[in-house]
Structure formats: structure tokens, C-alpha cells
Design a protein around this nucleic acid. Structure first.
Length: 875
RNA sequence: AGGUCGUUAGCUCAGUUGGUUCAGAGCGCUGCCUUGACAGGGCAGAGGUCACCAGUUCGAGCCUGGUACGACCUACCA
């Protein structure tokens, strides 16, 4: 036997991944004979590189898909990438900027060329990295949200929804990203606690020497003020009603109005109204029919409407205004103030509320079937606690701003006409035809101007579960074979952060376009955090490089490490220790293999091992039942832990130790065959979690033909098992533990064997397990009769055991231990007896519970009498 | 500010319909063990008033109300 004592992952990994690929084992085609099972990958951004979150997410998907495949289902896991419009565009802009190229001067066409080059260069990296993890994706089906046919699907859907009257164009206050120069959806805005200042500014009341003080965090917007607002009931300001105040610096008179929106307690109780730059002010402005003065450009600099500081950035302008106000004596004071300020998720720029013309999708009606499907568990969320969140969002859903002022993405198929109208159509030619028909004129193609904006990136990914199988469906309305067969998909594995961004919208699109749910189960993973509980991120530098981890610990080690501690919906506090544990598990399995594989066999039949074999057969079934239950409930970590313990404890620590022949001795053929069978079955259970080592060992364990693989082997079948055998063997294990314990406390070497005397009415059990006791407890003979002098005794259930110890016995200590045990048992007995003596308990509690208590009482009484006897003998 | 969820061993978490076989697991820790598949190993062991306070009940980790702390979601006040 010349195998190394450590498993070498890197060799197996590349070898078996290639083997699976060569035999097209990941590929699935519709097959009416087989039950379909499909998962679509949450498409990672083309800009992305693999991070720990992807590792967790994709490992879970791989576990689910591999198990389904072994269960004989037609498993199809569709991979792909997302164009991620703003995220990618931001990166390309940054890359160009480094080269000294400006996006605007480059122009749309040229810029897109660069973006596509970027996509070609980096877009595939992340998928390649997934292969290292062992992901069994059907790579032939790899999709990209901007593939031609997927793009056509997006455009078709836009046209369709527009025709249905669900898409409209409107001027609204939107979240404006001055850095990305685009509107953002509410979901793309992150609020951060920012320390700022509250500036108290004095406005002069027109025609008087009196001043009125307002508090604002944004002094740079005073030039856009159109009114001062007070509370109608505020007596402090009653005398100002109907008067005007002058904006400092530009000296412009604005009316003082009343509105009960104002909080009299806050600040000075006076509010400046700046409709162009604040959502609430905008609403007040609408109520009072005030003018809207927008003093900002799209990049956040001041425009000429500001009258002063034109061209200055808003934050620089703020500082300068403060200085100017001070100089004018109109800054009353400034105080420190903490507030939540919205930031762009992608560019981190401070969001500017801004009025602009955007495209919207009406959500209220669309959301109804999607809300219902989750509430009635047609689609199940794991863990279900997310149902509440989902509901509150769907019930308060707001119209979705789907336009983005970007270039990278699906360009909005709206075409503007010289007459000021517009038409929506799949392409320019169609648009022309529609326009000419509608307006009874004859425009030419050159008259049509396509909308400059692109669609929100989620407007393509919400179609993903449909479009990856059949992008043409959105145009033809006819499902192709793939869509008919693989849709609805089975499981979706994703992060709760995008439950609304993506999951909810996929459900909406699913019902709107197929009338069906897009998936049955949604498994929500947590966030991978570091030991300090911080989210792992590039900027913090606290995220290990996943590929390096794989290199060091092996893909299987990393996969199991991540799964050891990640119940659904819970964050994963990542610790490299976990991955180390995963690697150690690999080595444990590897060494079990070395042991089994190294045994020479002989024909003789070893009866001693029958009990062990019988026990493990039953124990395996019991564990399998437990594992299946965990899977059913999407308790992936628990399923893994159950397998871990089955292999490490039950198989290695108990079973192998029981049947293991003495050093360099042969084993009987029958036992070896059984053991190899067991090991193969364990490897099968392991395979979804640890695909590489399980394949490696399975291939080595028997004669395999080319094209055989554990990944296609049949998942073990659940069979009935005998609980009694497991319980009784457990009892024998307890005896073994007692003996080991006595050895440990009395300082008896495990090498020193002795006879065990047993007082029992179940001799058969111990006779059949004699082999176990010999090997595990180093017993050289069992006696069933007779008194033992100078012995240490213990009791398991109602059986009594004696170990002869001669001079090693400390009588006082024995007595003390015995008394302790008696005391405990008496206490236990007393509580049970008391309970059974309580009439209300006996009358109220269910029969089984009372029966159980009675049994406990009887057991305790039996045990107690044995213990008392022993005590007498000692004294 | 409102909502949802959580608080169980040093750490990370199980504990499904209330019933001392329910107070658990993994890791960590302590002691002992090294020619024997594996020291990245084996065996044995210690560790918890189940956040706190009331209540319901014959009986509460589990149910009810409240308090404290934490996480997330939604909204956001100048």
C-alpha cells in the first residue's frame, strides 16, 4: 500500500471535471421519459469576479442539481451572465477615463464598442471560476442578457406592455445619480448615516427690518427657494402671514405660505420650499401651485438659474454659500446634525432628487398574482420568514422607473417624430409604419429619433427563467420544447437583498407571460461575513480569494466548509477554520478508503462481524431518512452534518473499528464486500457536497467502464429499517463507553484486557455482540454468571456489569460515586412519582405521555434497586 | 419613525404540534493515548437560571404581554 496519507485535491479536481465534460454529463435535453429538474443561475455581472457570496450560492445550487441528477431526474442547470447596465457602464467609463478618454466625446457607438470588448474580455471569467468549484452547469446553454435573441425578447416585452397601457412616460421626482448621470430606482439607493450641519439662515421680511430664520442642511439650494412655509397654527409667526421674505444673496422675494406638513418642533419651525430639489418640497409646491426652479445641471453643478456660483459643484457651492452668508451676516448659526443621505449603489454619489421625464411600468395589477402565489405557498420561500417582507413590499408596490440614462443596455424602442409625438415599436422600420399609419402621413426613417435611454438591467433579468430556454417565446407566444419541458423551474437560490429587485419581478413576469410560476422554491442565502461580522467586501479587503482557498484546501473542502454553517436565510460568519474542517473531512474519508482498499481477503467466514454489518445497514437507512427530511426542508447544512457524522462517527469510529482485522491480517471476503458496498453508498450521499473526492474514490473502489461516474449513479433508496437493532447496538456502545471511561479514570491501559461479567436477561444481545466488545473494549471473555470479587460495577438500562480490578479499586471512591448516582436516580424517581401522583396531570395529559412517565418510573426503580444492592455489597 | 425577525455552552447554530430520554450538535477547550487507515488522528471529559420581568398551565426554551439589546426591511424631517 503506497497511497499517501493525505488526499491530493488538485489532481482529482481537474481530472474528473474534464471527464464529466468530455462525457457531456452536465448537458440535458428534454426527455419525456424522465422527470425534469431545472435551476437557472442568478446571472453574475459580466464585470464580476468570483467572491465568497457566489461560492456559497453556487455550491448550494450544485448540491441541489447533483442530488436531483442522481435521483434519476433530468437535471439542467442553466448558467449565464448579466450585462448589469449601470455597474458595467461605470467600470467601462472608469477604464476609459484612465486612458484619458471621455465617454461623451467618444459617442454612443464607439463607447458601446469598448463596452463589448470589455464584456468579451472579462465576461467569461466568473463562469470559468465556477468550474473550479465543481459547478455542474449545462455550459452549452450559457446565456447572456444581451444576446441578440434575449435582447429581442426584452424589446418585445416592452412593446407588449406599452400596448397594454402598462408602460407610460411621465415627469416625476426621481433619484438622480449626478456621477452616473442617470435616474435610479429606489432600490438602487442606499441610505447612509452622514454627519452634516444644520445651517440656520436669516431671511429678511420684505418691508421690515425683521428677519425670519430657517434651518436647512442644503444652503446651496436657497436660490431655488420659491416660498417659506410655516405651520398655520404657529403663533410665533402669525404676524408674517401673507408677507414675503427675501432670499439672501440674490435678494429675491418669495411668499410665506402655510402648510401643516411643517413640524413646529423641528428647527425653527420655518421651512424653505425648494420644489426642484426635495421630494416633500415638490409635493408642497404642487399643493400651493408654486413654480419649480431647478438650479442644478445633470452632473450636480449649479446652472445659470442659480444666478450665483454658476458652474460650481453642489458641495463646493455649499461651502461658498456658507461663507457668503456669513459675510452678509445672514447665517445665524450652524449646528452639527446627523442624517441619512441617499447614495448611489454603484457610483456612491450622493443622490439628488430631481424632476425628470422617465418611463414607468404600472405595477399594481401586475403584482397581484405574484403576491398571491407566494402567500398561498404556490411558490415557497425558504426560510418562510421572508414571506412577510415580500408581502409588505408587494402590497405597497410602486411604479417601476425602468429608464436609465445610460448607453450600455437595451435601448428603449420609442421613436420620436417631428410632430412631437412618439411611437413604440420593435424596430425603426416598424415604428415608421406605425407612425405613418397613425398620423396618416409619410415620415421617412430619418425623421425618427430613437429614445436615447436604455432599460433598467432588471427589465431583462426578470425574464431570465423564460428567456434562457426560449427567448423567441415573447414574440411567437409558442413554447419551444425546452420551455415546455424545463419550465417552471424547480429551485431558485439567491440572496434576500434581491428578493424584490429580481425574485418578485421574475414571478410577475412569469405569471404575465406564461400564466405560471417561474420556480417552485426560492432558497434565500445569507450574506457571507468575516469573523467580526462585517460584510465581506473588496474595499474592506476582508474577503479571502476563493480560488486561493480552493488551491489550498481543495474545492470539496471549501464547499463543505461554507455549508457547515449556513442555514437558509442566515448570514454565514466565514472562518477559514470551517474550510479547514472541510479539508480534514476529505482526509478522513481518504484514509478510510486507504484502510478498506488495503485489506487482503480470505475466504473464511467471520461470524463476529455479523452484528456490526447488520447494525450499520440499519443505521445507514435511519440516517438516510433523516437526510432526506433535511433536504425536503432545504436544510442543507443539517443534511451535510448528518452525512458528516454518519461517515465520521458511525462508519469510521464505530463500524470500521469493529470489523477491522488485526494489523496486516486479512479480512473475510464477505465482510469486505459489505464494507465496500457501504462505502460506495456513503460516497453517493457525499457526492452532491463533495463531488471530486467522491468521484475519485468511487472510481478507484471498483472496476469502472469509461463513461461510468458516481455523478450519474443512483442515489441510495430509502428502505425500512429495524429500530430495535439500532437501539440495542446503541446499548452495547454505551457499555463500551462505560468501560473506556473506567479505563480512563482508573488508569488502566487500553492494552490490558480483562473479562466482563454481565448480569442480564438478554444474554443473546451480548453474545451476538461479543466481537464488538472484544475489539472496542478489549474484553477477552464474557461471563454471564457468578459473583465478582473486587470489581468495579456499572449499570446500563437494567443490566449490570462487573469489571475485575483487584488492587486498583478505591472503595471509598466507588462508594462515593455510587451514592451520587443513587442520589440522582432518587431525585429523578421522586419527580416522576410526584408527577404521576398529581391527579390533574394524569387526567389532563395525553395517554402516551402518562404511559411514558410510568415507564420512566419503572426503569428508574429497577436501576435504583440494583444500585442499592451494589452499595450494600461494597459496605 | 414604523414593521419583521432574533437573543439557547467560549464561537456558530439546532431545538418542528408545550410533557427531564430536551437542555442538544459542530467547532473550540481540558486530560490521557503515538510502530496499528488517519496527530489534519483516537478515547474520555468539562461548559448553559435557554436575554430579563410578569402571566397562562398540573407542567414553559417552546404560548401571551412587557422590558433591554441586536439584525434586517420600509420610510425619511427641513
Amino acid at each position: 500500500m503506497s497511497l499517501p496519507t493525505k488526499y491530493n485535491p488538485s489532481q482529482s479536481e481537474s481530472k474528473w471535471y474534464q471527464y464529466w465534460m468530455d462525457h457531456k454529463m452536465f448537458h440535458a435535453e428534454p426527455d419525456p421519459e424522465k422527470e425534469p429538474f431545472s435551476i437557472v443561475i442568478p446571472p453574475p455581472n459580466v464585470t464580476g469576479v468570483l467572491h465568497m457570496g457566489h461560492m456559497l450560492n453556487n455550491t448550494i445550487q450544485d448540491v441541489l442539481i447533483r442530488k436531483a441528477r442522481m435521483e434519476g431526474k433530468n437535471a439542467c442547470w442553466v448558467p449565464g451572465t448579466d450585462h448589469a447596465s449601470i455597474a458595467t457602464e461605470a467600470k467601462v467609463v472608469a477604464m476609459l477615463k484612465e486612458k484619458g478618454i471621455d465617454k461623451e466625446s467618444l459617442g454612443r457607438e464607439k463607447f458601446l464598442e469598448h463596452a463589448w470588448q470589455w464584456k468579451e474580455k472579462y465576461g467569461g471569467i466568473i463562469l470559468e471560476q465556477l468550474k473550479k468549484l465543481g459547478a455542474s452547469c449545462d455550459w452549452e446553454r450559457t446565456r447572456f442578457t444581451m444576446d441578440k435573441d434575449l435582447s429581442d425578447a426584452v424589446i418585445s416585452v416592452f412593446v407588449d406592455l406599452h400596448q397594454k397601457g402598462k408602460i407610460y412616460r411621465a415627469i416625476r421626482m426621481v433619484n438622480w445619480d449626478p456621477k452616473g448621470k442617470t435616474a435610479l430606482s429606489d432600490d438602487e439607493v442606499i441610505f447612509k448615516e452622514v454627519r452634516s450641519k444644520l445651517y440656520h439662515i436669516k431671511y429678511q421680511i420684505e418691508g421690515t427690518e425683521e428677519f425670519l430664520t430657517i434651518a436647512t442642511t442644503r444652503p446651496e439650494t436657497i436660490m431655488a427657494d420659491v416660498a417659506i412655509c410655516i405651520h398655520p397654527d404657529d403663533e410665533r409667526y402669525t404676524h408674517l402671514k401673507g408677507k414675503k421674505a427675501r432670499i439672501p444673496l440674490i435678494n429675491k422675494p418669495i411668499p410665506i405660505i402655510e402648510d401643516d406638513y411643517v413640524d413646529m418642533e423641528f428647527g425653527t419651525g420655518c421651512l424653505k420650499i425648494t420644489p426642484a430639489h426635495d421630494i416633500n418640497d415638490y409635493e408642497i409646491g404642487m399643493r400651493h401651485r408654486l413654480e419649480v426652479i431647478d438650479i442644478l445641471n445633470d452632473d450636480g453643478t449649479l446652472n445659470d438659474k442659480a444666478q450665483i456660483l454658476i458652474g460650481e459643484d453642489r458641495f463646493i457651492a455649499r461651502k461658498k454659500i456658507v461663507k457668503l452668508l456669513k459675510g452678509a451676516g445672514q447665517l445665524d448659526r450652524e449646528e452639527d446634525y446627523g442624517s441619512n443621505v441617499g447614495h448611489s449603489e454603484r457610483t456612491d454619489a450622493v443622490i439628488e432628487p430631481r424632476l425628470s421625464l422617465q418611463w414607468f411600468l404600472k405595477m399594481e395589477d401586475l403584482a397581484q398574482p405574484a403576491l398571491k402565489a407566494v402567500m398561498d405557498d404556490t411558490i415557497q420561500l425558504f426560510p418562510p420568514k421572508f414571506k412577510n417582507m415580500y408581502r409588505s413590499w408587494m402590497e405597497n408596490v410602486r411604479d417601476w422607473c425602468i429608464s436609465r440614462q445610460l448607453w450600455w443596455g437595451h435601448r428603449i424602442p420609442a421613436y420620436y417624430l417631428p410632430n412631437g409625438e412618439y411611437v413604440v415599436a420593435k424596430n425603426k422600420e416598424d415604428a415608421l409604419a406605425v407612425a405613418n399609419e397613425k398620423f396618416k402621413t409619410s415620415f421617412s426613417l430619418d425623421d425618427l429619433q430613437q429614445d436615447e435611454d436604455v432599460l433598467d438591467t432588471w427589465f431583462s433579468s426578470w425574464l431570465w427563467p423564460i428567456s434562457v430556454f426560449d427567448p423567441g417565446y415573447f414574440q411567437t407566444g409558442k413554447k419551444n420544447r425546452d420551455l415546455q419541458y424545463f419550465y417552471p423551474t424547480n429551485d431558485l437560490v439567491t440572496a434576500p437583498e434581491i428578493l424584490f429587485f429580481w425574485v418578485a419581478r421574475m414571478i410577475i413576469a412569469g405569471y404575465e407571460y406564461t400564466g405560471e410560476k417561474p420556480f417552485k422554491n426560492v432558497y434565500l442565502t445569507g450574506i457571507v461575513r468575516d469573523k467580526l461580522g462585517r460584510k465581506m467586501s473588496k474595499s474592506l479587503g476582508n474577503s479571502p480569494d476563493p480560488l486561493k482557498l480552493i488551491e489550498i484546501y481543495g474545492a470539496d473542502g471549501v464547499r463543505t466548509g461554507m455549508l457547515f454553517s449556513s442555514p437558509a436565510g442566515n448570514d454565514l460568519p466565514f472562518d477559514e477554520k470551517l474550510v479547514e474542517q472541510g479539508r480534514n473531512f476529505c482526509n478522513k474519508i481518504w484514509n478510510a478508503f486507504r484502510l478498506i482498499d488495503g485489506w487482503e481477503t480470505q475466504a473464511s467466514h467471520e461470524k463476529d462481524n455479523e452484528a456490526a454489518i447488520n447494525w450499520f445497514e440499519n443505521r445507514f437507512q435511519q440516517a438516510l431518512e433523516e437526510i432526506e427530511d433535511h433536504f425536503k426542508k432545504f436544510r442543507i447544512s443539517d443534511a451535510l452534518m448528518a452525512i458528516y457524522k454518519l461517515i465520521w462517527d458511525d462508519f469510521c469510529s464505530w463500524y470500521l473499528e469493529m470489523i477491522k482485522p488485526a494489523f496486516q491480517q486479512p479480512i473475510d471476503q464477505g465482510t469486505k464486500n459489505k464494507t465496500v458496498d457501504f462505502f460506495e453508498n456513503l460516497l453517493k450521499l457525499l457526492h452532491p457536497f463533495m463531488p471530486f473526492i467522491s468521484e475519485e474514490l468511487w472510481q478507484q473502489l471498483g472496476e469502472r467502464k469509461d463513461g461510468d461516474a458516481i455523478m450519474l449513479a443512483a442515489w441510495p433508496q430509502l428502505k425500512p429499517y429495524d429500530e430495535k437493532i439500532i437501539m440495542e447496538t446503541q446499548q452495547v456502545f454505551e457499555v463500551v463507553s462505560h468501560i473506556r471511561n473506567i479505563r480512563a479514570t482508573k488508569g488502566i491501559s487500553p492494552k490490558e484486557s480483562f473479562q466482563l461479567t454481565i448480569n442480564t436477561n438478554n444474554q443473546n444481545l451480548y453474545r451476538s455482540c461479543e466481537g464488538m466488545l472484544r475489539k472496542l473494549a478489549n474484553i477477552d471473555a464474557l461471563n454471564f454468571k457468578g459473583e465478582v470479587q473486587n470489581s468495579v460495577n456499572f449499570v446500563v438500562k437494567s443490566d449490570e456489569f462487573f469489571i475485575p480490578l483487584e488492587e486498583k479499586i478505591d472503595l471509598d471512591l466507588e462508594k462515593e460515586n455510587l451514592e451520587k448516582e443513587i442520589e440522582y436516580t432518587q431525585g429523578f424517581l421522586a419527580s416522576v412519582t410526584k408527577k404521576l401522583g398529581n391527579e390533574r396531570f394524569v387526567n389532563h395529559a395525553p395517554k402516551e405521555v402518562v404511559e411514558k412517565e410510568k415507564r420512566k418510573m419503572n426503569d428508574a426503580q429497577a436501576k435504583l434497586s440494583i444500585l442499592m444492592d451494589n452499595l450494600k455489597k461494597l459496605v
